[in-house]
Design a protein around this nucleic acid. Structure first.
Length: 816
RNA sequence: GCUGGGAUGGUGGAAUGGUAGACACGAUAGGUUUAGGACCUAUUGCUCGUAAGAGCGUGGAGGUUCAAAUCCUCUUCCCAGCACCA
């Protein structure tokens, strides 16, 4: 047979598949539906990354297998083209984003097709298309209608480089912007927010109903950060004011020796005695102007000032001095903390710094009941209560319940639930995004753009760079901004902020179901047919961003009767990133970027696809290795050459032939289902090694081999399928007229006729017996055979067997 | 500090209580080739040994078990996320 030249095979089939509409999904088809989703990309100027290729070709293999199994598979793609990256890229080139985006999309599309991905191109979407973002704006109006979208003055994370504010989720732990790496600043600004906190409990609770990796679910749970505690109200001596403190550990309240207010707390000035006023004001000024960098640089050294006032502990009427310190954060709990230095490390440090009393109310791990003098003795959990009157001798959990009941009964406190999750800052002062469809009228206030006037199209602005003043560049589009109020007809102005880049991706998976619908977001019946997404493949980095956001938006759509299910994604599976050959993240500046086009030119798309699946476990970080690519190319060449061994005469298969064939069918089927592509490919290689050693390969084996390989290497298998005289595509049983589909294994060929049984003595392998299947369960015979073995006798001599364990078909173990 | 994940040959990795190292890369030797590459065959965890064989071996220490990479306890290091979160 002629040589394997990928470039002679691949484009030919890509063209044919497109002409035949091979990978279309059919709405309402009788076959079982399967919705396979990948995270749609931001079409960057750099073109496809090998990481995209890995994730998409793996899910492509998954989709192809499902189709061969007879499912009606939806595997769509689109473009998430609004947002900062597209805008910054356009600025760097000095052109308009609306010119750049279509070019980038065209490039991505060409590349996707060159890889042979089986996307249903008839459902392609683009978030910057007004026909698409009409519905992104519509969703916003629904949020507004239900009072879940609102404006408020909030401290925002300002990125001085990108000149916009950001959501908390977009700022990393060190205070830098996740995209550009520049340190952000806190600013007060009027912003649009979405009330995601109202969905905190549902987002938490319903994690139980979906199949997410543990790591992903845990991360969302942590981010939502639900905590049950109590707000305790303390009276202030000689004052009408009260201080409310949130705590999850009211059991330790007999150990409370002071109160700390965060510097933003509103009642500080009312509580401060004249004598201390100047110092307090100075402290507040100093701490509130402190930047994130300064805070981190300072470490955890405690600072603070005394107000001169005292709060009264409800439990024992003890006076507790009220202090101010910036270790108490304004946005956490009630912005005020009751200081229990014996059982909280921060409180201990504060008490030490300012010489405040430290009392132990929980017995230490080692039974220690003495006064606490060192931070190592501070203990936050475990033990029994002491020095706590009616709580003494109780376990901390019992004490917590008892004291909460007591405080509530007496009216000193109220059980509350607190969350780490904050409302979602949803406006950006940037050009390249969906305009927020709201009109500001001096008479009527905030007026939503009527649904019939959607979409509010983004006007073409020549000068679209961010102003840096905190105002969107859209404010300069006077003609666009000035509109009559839809309510009263008077003079009014459009909202000039745009939505964040997450807006379009919140709901895109619904638009694939009905991309041309101009009456609604998507047809109700189509949504009911396709939803939920059966498997959603995406990166870990979106766990508390896109994945959480889109769950929230979808749940809202469900609650207003638009979406058909309570959760959008039945199953989530993550992928690991692909690093450059030097083990570093691929980046132009390191010069370690692998361009998929180069690999396709040199080795072909099938090699690229299989290599990326074979390189390691799918959810792990993998380093690119050119030698590995060559290894896979070698494998496909050997597949190609196998054709020469095809036996034209019908021959029957040996028992061994059948066993390895059925074993491989089982392994590959199971591994694809479990996202273990690396071992699926390995077992194909094993079978190929076996087949290559044979004189002749039967047609049955050959066809089965090609069918199993088809999801991984769609081009070469299609070509070889044709070479053996098959008329229809290997990929689509529907077009195959049901002639051939995904192979099934037969259990009877998985059992071996002769089984090797390992003989162990004291856990060490000493011999291997080959046993006929029919005496497998006869322990006596096996035991006798084992003892007769020369190798075994050597080790048994002079010892008596104390115990014998026999696991049929596997092992016989002697303890001597 | 908290939460989650991880550590296996020269390398990527396989094996989730039952023959550790599948598969691939690399390496070594031989074959083939005008040469290089490509291809084919064999070997390849470590130590001792000409060999037969023996001992050791899954970050470290201990435990459960006839049997542990796998389960339990402690511990070291690495990765990810969160973090003065009350």
């Amino acid at each position: 047979m002629k040589k394997y030249i990928p470039s002679a095979v691949e484009p030919k089939w890509q063209k044919k598949w497109e002409e035949d509409g091979m990978y279309k999904a059919y709405d309402f088809d009788k076959r079982k539906k399967f919705y396979c989703l990948i995270e749609f990309p931001y079409p960057s100027g750099a073109g496809l990354h090998v990481g995209h290729v890995r994730s998409w070709s793996a899910m492509d293999a998954y989709s192809r297998k499902k189709r061969m199994e007879g499912y009606n598979v939806l595997y769509p793609i689109g473009w998430d083209a609004f947002g900062l990256p597209a805008e910054n890229y356009a600025i760097s080139l000095g052109v308009h984003p609306s010119e750049i985006v279509p070019k980038n999309i065209a490039k991505f599309k060409t590349q996707c097709k060159a890889i042979g991905l089986s996307f249903d191109w008839s459902r392609e979407i683009d978030t910057t298309d007004p026909k698409y973002y009409k519905w992104t704006q519509w969703i916003f109006l629904k949020f507004f209608e239900k009072s879940l979208a609102y404006q408020a003055d909030v401290p925002v994370n300002w990125c001085p480089s990108c000149k916009t504010n950001l959501a908390d989720e977009e700022v990393l732990a060190d205070g830098t912007h996740e995209r550009c790496g520049i340190m952000t600043e806190k600013r007060m600004q009027k912003q649009w927010l979405l009330r995601i906190t109202q969905y905190a409990d549902k987002l938490l609770e319903d994690l139980k109903t979906v199949d997410y990796p543990k790591m992903v679910a845990e991360q969302q749970i942590n981010w939502i950060g639900r905590k049950e505690g109590i707000n305790i109200t303390y009276k202030v001596k000689d004052s009408k004011e009260e201080v409310v403190c949130f705590t999850t550990r009211p059991d330790t309240n007999f150990g409370a020796t002071f109160i700390v207010l965060g510097p933003e707390h509103p009642i500080i000035l009312k509580l401060t005695k004249d004598k201390y006023l100047e110092e307090v004001k100075k402290y507040i000024k100093k701490t509130t102007s402190k930047s994130e960098i300064e805070r981190i640089a300072e470490g955890r050294k405690k600072t603070g000032v005394f107000t001169g006032s005292y709060a009264i502990n409800n439990l024992n009427n003890k006076l507790m001095p009220i202090w101010i310190s910036d270790f108490v954060l304004g946005h956490v709990g009630t912005g005020a903390v009751v200081g229990v230095p014996g059982h909280d490390k921060r409180d201990f440090e504060f008490a030490k710094e300012f010489g405040l009393e430290i009392i132990r109310v929980v017995v230490g791990k080692d039974g220690d009941t003495s006064a606490i003098t060192r931070i190592e003795q501070v203990q936050e959990e475990e033990g029994k209560m002491i020095n706590s009157e009616f709580l003494d001798d109780l376990d901390i959990r019992e004490a917590t319940k008892k004291v909460m009941d007591y405080l509530e009964k007496k009216g000193f406190g109220k059980r509350v639930v607190s969350y780490h999750l904050r409302d979602w800052v949803f406006s950006r002062q940037h050009y390249w995004g969906e305009p927020i469809p709201i009109i500001h009228c001096s008479k009527c206030g905030l007026v939503p753009v009527p649904e019939k006037d959607l979409p509010v199209e983004l006007p073409y602005l020549k000068k679209y760079e961010p102003s840096g003043t905190g105002q969107s560049p859209l404010a300069n589009a006077k003609e666009w901004v000035n509109v009559p109020c839809p309510k009263c007809g008077g003079k009014a102005k459009r909202e000039t902020d745009t939505m964040p880049n997450w807006a379009g991706s919140n709901w895109y998976f619904l638009r694939y179901l009905d991309p041309l619908n101009d009456k609604e977001i998507a047809g109700e019946e189509k949504m009911a047919y396709w939803m939920p997404v059966d498997i959603y493949q995406g990166g870990f980095e979106h766990t508390t961003l896109h994945l959480l956001y889109s769950r929230f938006v979808y749940k809202f759509l469900y609650d207003i009767g638009v979406a058909p299910t309570s959760e959008p994604y039945a199953k989530r599976r993550p992928h690991g990133i692909v690093l450059g050959p030097d083990g570093r993240k691929m980046s132009k500046s390191f010069g370690n970027v692998i361009n998929p086009d180069d690999i396709i030119n040199q080795y072909g798309a099938d090699t690229l696809r299989i290599y990326e699946m074979f390189m390691g476990p799918f959810d792990q970080i993998n380093v690119w290795n050119e030698d590995g690519v060559n290894g896979v190319y070698h494998f496909l060449q050997r597949v190609w050459l196998l054709y020469d061994k095809l036996d034209p005469i019908k021959t029957s298969l040996s028992r061994e032939d059948l066993m390895i064939m059925h074993k491989t069918i089982k392994k590959v089927s199971g591994d694809i289902e479990n996202i273990k592509f690396n071992t699926a490919v390995a077992s194909m290689m094993e079978w190929l090694n076996y087949l290559s050693r044979k004189e002749k390969v039967s047609k049955e084996e050959y066809k089965t081999f090609l069918l199993l390989l088809a999801p991984f290497a769609p081009h070469i298998t299609e070509e070889l399928w044709e070479s053996i005289g098959e008329k229809y595509s290997i990929h689509q049983p529907r077009l195959n007229r049901g002639q051939q589909s995904w192979p099934k294994f037969d259990k009877k060929y998985l059992e071996e006729e002769e089984v090797s049984v390992v003989v162990q003595i004291n856990g060490k392998v000493r011999d291997i017996l080959v046993i006929e299947k029919d005496i497998l369960n006869n322990k006596e015979v096996i035991e006798k055979m084992a003892k007769q073995s020369h190798k075994v006798q050597k080790f048994l001599a002079g010892n008596s067997v104390k115990k014998t364990v026999y696991v049929p078909g596997k092992i016989i173990s002697f303890a001597v």
